[in-house]
Amino acid sequence: MKNERPDLKIIGNNSASGGRYDNAKVIGNGLITGDLDCATFKGVGDSRLQGNLKAGTAKITGSLHVDGKAEIGDMRVTGDLDLDGDFHARHCHLRGRFTTKAGVRADDLSLMGHITVKKNCEAESFNGEGQIRIDGLLNADRIEIKTYGPSRISEIGGDSIDIGKGSAASFGKIIKVLFVPSNWGNAMLTVNSIEGDDIRLSSTRARVVRGNNVVIESGCEIDLVEYTGSLRVNHGSTVKEKKKI
């Protein structure tokens, strides 16, 4: 079965039509027209796909723009991933910039850099560092966010939620080159509502926080906290209203 699929290779400044391939590789500046379905995709340089991408594994060094949606098993990106449609992946490890005009559904997301999602972002585990903007709901079992720059998420829901400001020392070298966080000072995360079982927040501005065990560390501005178990508020934060339910 595997041998029936040919390999695709684009080297230099070139284009090819999509289709079903075993290994697809772009080195240089490649344009693929039509849907691409392949076992592995490897892009070094700038790749653009006019269609939908389906790949067992994908590794991008440089940039990839997909006009449609992408469905990928394991994905590794160093650089820029830009999608017009939905992004589905089992694992995605990205260092650089991630943008999608639609939604994200994944098992395991580890994104570092500049993250923009226009619709909902769903994962079992979400690990985001950098400047994050999600216009829909971020829904994951485990959510860990470190902000480096002003971030905004419409809603957050999950089991354990841990949000804070990143420290300069832990910020990756690659990201320093790709994206200079000049606005560290106001690296706050602004959220409408946060709902979860165990919540720990710092440097977060939120209208409502609802949870079981809630810990508010320094630098938070929260309008209302509703909790069923315990609440601890650090004196460096303001909580306008607390309600035990």
């Binding site: 769903e122 079992e124 829904n139 994951a140 079992d141 829901g157 999950g158 089991d159 354990s160 409408n192 509502s193 709902e195 979860g196 079982d197 209208r207 409502v208 609802r210 949870g211 079981n212 209302l224």
Partner: peptide, 28 residues
Amino acid sequence: SYGQLYRWKRKLLIPEEWFIRKSTFTGQ
């Protein structure tokens, strides 16, 4: 718990259209 509700929503056990957003005096 919230965790369970969100997990079930993610797994599509609860359809998206059942989540009805409404404005109340405490916000949405």
